[in-house]
Each structure stands twice: as C-alpha cells, then as structure tokens.
Amino acid sequence: MFLTMVNYIQPLEVVEHYLEEHIQFLDKYYDLNKFIFSGRRNPRVGGIILMNAVSEQEVETIIAEDPFYIHNIARYEIIEFTPTKYADPFQIFINDTPNIG
C-alpha cells in the first residue's frame, strides 16, 4: 500500500485551473479500485492519496497520468507501508495481509 503526498509547487490559481482534470484522473483510479481515499491537505498546500498498488513503479505510472504532474503543478512523495493493524472494515483493501493488531 502506498501513501502519496501531493505538494503544490504552483499558486492555487493554477491548481484550480486543472482541478476538474485532476478529479477525472482520481475518478478513473477509484473505478479501477486503485485509490482508497484522497483529499486536500489543511492548509491547502497539496493533497493525500492512499493507493492500493502492487509496486512503487505502478504508483509512478499512475502519477504520470495526473494533470498536476503533467503540467508541473505538484511534486509527489511516495511512502510505501504495510498495514499491520487496522479497523475490520478496512480488511477489504488488504491483500493477503492478516490483521495481527
């Protein structure tokens, strides 16, 4: 599983200009069951995306389709982690990982 921190490097006016395209990008990967949650950071300096991907290479391939990446609006920090403790309803996102809490 991967947590991706999106850090804006352009003013919010530029972010807003590409926001609808970014939302379409998000929708695509929610439909493919690759994204678990996403949202704006507070203060609004970027966002967070939790991805259910199999490798960092897959994450990088997905990010390369984000309009924020394509138009050099944001930088991305990719953090890989293995969930070892989680709420029971979260189990549907975990692939072959027992809740050893």
Rank of each mutant, 00 (worst) to 15 (best):
F93V: 00
I23C: 00
P89E: 02
Y76W: 01
Q10P: 01
I23A: 05
V6M: 11
G47F: 14
T97N: 03
E80T: 07
A64Y: 03
G46I: 06
D27N: 11
M1Q: 05
R75T: 09
I78A: 11
M51S: 07
N99L: 10
I79E: 07
Y8H: 06
L32C: 06
F2K: 07
F35G: 00
L3G: 02
K34Y: 08
N52M: 12
M51D: 02
D66F: 14
F37E: 04
V6N: 13
I62R: 07
Y76S: 01
V6F: 09
N7T: 15
A74S: 15
F90Y: 15
Y86A: 09
Y8W: 05
T82V: 13
N72H: 15
Y30G: 08
T84D: 08
E65F: 08
D31K: 08
G46N: 09
D66N: 12
M1A: 07
Q10L: 03
E80G: 15
H17I: 00
T82M: 11
N52P: 02
L3M: 15
E56F: 02
N42G: 13
G39P: 05
E58Y: 12
Y29T: 04
E58G: 06
F68P: 03
H71L: 01
I79A: 07
E56R: 13
T84L: 14
I100F: 06
E60N: 11
K28E: 13
I49N: 05
I36K: 11
D31N: 13
F93T: 01
I73F: 11
I70F: 01
F25S: 01
P89C: 04
K28D: 10
F2A: 04
P11A: 04
L50P: 01
L50R: 03
